[in-house]
């Protein structure tokens, strides 16, 4: 296979143009501007132009910089695991569940640990959903249990066992000091310690979550910003069909 070399695109192929904005812990001055240029050069850029700089506090200067990136990348070497979606809607998903399983699917979700944010789990699970896309509670072929925030891992797992959950949704919004990674890992360790990993489809979600991250930590899939409830519902449906050897 021939190389497929790429660079950022400004207005001409392979011009490498990138916009950067950052703050340096120095007083705004001509010297500070030079420092910003020199620093961006160290990042492997050329034709560096400091478009704007301004003092934003004593000892701190903010910069807006345009520059051309030097490295090229062979796109053929890049692979990613995306959650596959056929873009099924609410009606189609309910119909498929009824046809393929003949029972309602059970889904439990929570924000675990000390994280108090329900915004993510609510967007996916609450009746209303978001952006005109109904939440899992609304699905006629699902029993959805949204436990809210600050739920201990043990409580979430106990609930999942109690309702014979097909899927567990774990949400994390706070990422300070990687608390989300710790919490996801803790939950996975708990499920594995109880020897229940194969019983559930395990999904994670949050503003800083990627599918790769989820798979790396042993989850089935991860959902980041912009995820609609129907994306999650479709994933649960198709993954469960796969697990049970049903054809699509």
């Amino acid at each position: 296979m021939s190389d497929n070399l790429i660079k950022p695109y400004g207005d001409t192929l392979n011009d490498g143009v990138v916009q950067l904005s950052f703050t340096l812990p120095i007083e705004a001055s001509a010297r500070a501007r030079k420092a910003a240029e020199a620093y961006v050069a160290k990042l492997n850029f050329e034709e560096i132009s400091v478009a704007h700089y301004k003092k934003i506090a004593d000892g701190f200067t903010y910069f807006v910089v345009y520059a051309r990136a030097i490295p090229v990348l062979d796109y053929n070497h890049i692979q990613a695991q995306e959650v596959e979606s056929k873009g099924m809607d609410y009606y189609e998903i309910n119909k498929q569940i009824a046809e393929k399983f003949g029972r309602k699917l059970n889904v439990v979700g929570a924000t675990i640990g000390t994280d108090a944010h329900t915004v993510g789990i609510d967007a996916i699970m609450n009746m209303k959903g978001w952006d005109g896309n109904y939440g899992l509670e609304r699905y006629s072929e699902m029993n959805a249990y949204n436990m809210g925030a600050q739920i201990p891992s043990e409580t979430l797992l106990a609930k999942a066992i109690e309702v014979k959950a097909d899927a567990i949704l774990v949400s994390q919004t706070v990422t300070q000091k990687d608390s989300h990674i710790r919490n996801f890992t803790e939950f996975m360790e708990l499920v594995e310690a109880e020897n229940l990993r194969k019983n559930f489809i395990l999904l994670i979600g949050g503003p800083r979550i990627t599918n790769e991250m989820a798979i790396e930590m042993g989850y089935d899939a991860g959902f980041g910003p912009g995820t609609k409830p129907s994306n999650v519902a479709e994933y649960i449906l198709t993954r469960l069909m796969e697990k049970q050897g049903l054809s699509r």
């Binding site: 904005s21 950052f22 703050t23 701190f60 990422t175 800083r208 910003p225």
Partner: peptide, 8 residues
Amino acid sequence: AIHTPLMQ
């Protein structure tokens, strides 16, 4: 929607 605000 991304992070705790940076100074900038």
